[in-house]
Nucleic acid binder design. Structure first.
Lengths: 222, 222
DNA sequence: GAGAATAGGTGTACAGCGTAAGTGTGTCAA
DNA sequence: TTGACACACTTACGCTGTACACCTATTCTC
């Protein structure tokens, strides 16, 4: 952060190159041009240096991409101080925040998918802590809280992956399933209208509701 | 398939290059060396030709990877004729089959994540049809069946993604969360044992159960 | 102040990537 | 025999990540 501070220098008008500036530039490129556009040369051009200069601030490209992941994590929308006492409702809000964050950076999912166990820094674990806290306060045991966290977390990741990858029907292009034969694929044919014109938000809420209410029942049963 | 048959030729001992042989080789490389190892040159070497020869059978690398996706889809473990009349239970079995398939090809998730709306061929829609059929027979409306399909489908994808990417604790390396301060991350610290030593199968069943039972309640309420 | 050490930017080079374009070569139909 | 065609090969171009050497400006030590 401030360890490059040189008190008496006139700063020379040149914003110094830092890891932060590099990862931010990479994230910006990823958001606007896609993950595959993020190359060392492209990022270097973005910050106004040559490619090899980046290596004074990141170990290699893998390290750079880990930095991008952390950058995204930092944007996690922490909920305001819990308003009501319905902690499961708070969990719902946290889940929505996660989805929004992942949709803000559509290539983030792709990045997560190819990254093996990213850094377990305190900062990037904080969102997890917030979620676990909500679940525990809702009355779930530590064990169940972990299970629920993984369930809902998995759901969010998978849902956004399908959503951003258009793995299911795209409302903008409702001409899906044109030549599905009702004999070969009877259920797909029958459900085609709902598959083609689906409201992503409504779909997401459906699944989220299924899980939250299931948890509520589980808490009540204890 | 058999359209390259040349009746009177002695076949020259040389297995002919086909799209199928290429995609199978690519899948094999993906499974054993990871998705990033799948290059045109590497695949060509695998089947015993030069890189450019592949282009007589696939349009480009993107087309090749679509072929790999279809290859995986073809392996979907279709359930035997429904044993009982509990269609939700059948859905549970289908979900397990999907997870197993994705775990058999650990890089498949990564492949799906970077592929935009893969081919909607009849063959690759069949697994979807089977799942939708089970949900509709369970008593869900067409609309709810689609929602449930997307919910459970998303869950499976996301779960396997976290699972194969070790996005959560690796039981083999239980030395996770070594220096988590209980003040900063109280819930993570409290749940650490469950986070570090988690049984993937049990976790998966927890989430699956939450959704299946939620659907059962929804059916009963109608 | 003089010299050494260091930090941080640059230039060149190499192996590997996807693939456009051109060059055989073996098998077929006419 | 001739022409066509399918299909494998060769070469080449611009891209990638990064090892290595080089240069310069600042800072530290005496």
């Amino acid at each position: 952060m401030g360890r490059t501070a040189t008190p008496a220098t006139p700063a020379k008008q040149r914003t110094p190159l830092t890891r932060e500036r590099i990862t931010q530039a990479a994230l910006h490129i990823m958001d606007t041009e896609g993950l595959e556009a993020v190359s060392m040369r492209r990022v270097a051009r973005e910050v106004g240096v040559e490619a090899m200069s980046l290596y004074h601030h990141v170990r290699d490209k893998d390290d750079l991409l880990n930095g991008v992941v952390e950058q995204v994590m930092r944007e996690f929308p922490f909920p305001q101080e819990p308003v009501g006492d319905d902690w499961l409702e708070a969990g719902r809000e946290i889940a929505r925040g996660w989805r929004d964050l992942l949709r803000t950076h559509p290539s983030a999912i792709q990045l997560f998918a190819e990254r093996k166990s990213p850094s377990a820094s305190e900062e990037s674990l904080r969102p997890m802590d917030v979620a676990l806290t909500a679940l525990r306060n809702a009355g779930l045991s530590d064990r169940d809280a972990v299970q629920a966290f993984h369930t809902i977390g998995g759901y969010i990741f998978g849902y956004v992956m399908m959503e951003t990858g258009r793995l299911f029907g795209d409302p903008a292009a409702a001409h899906d399933f044109p030549d599905v034969s009702p004999e070969q694929l009877p259920s797909v044919a029958a459900c085609a209208p709902f598959l083609a014109n689906c409201d992503f938000d409504e779909q997401f809420e459906f699944g989220l509701d299924l899980m939250i209410e299931g948890l509520r029942a589980k808490v009540g049963a204890n």
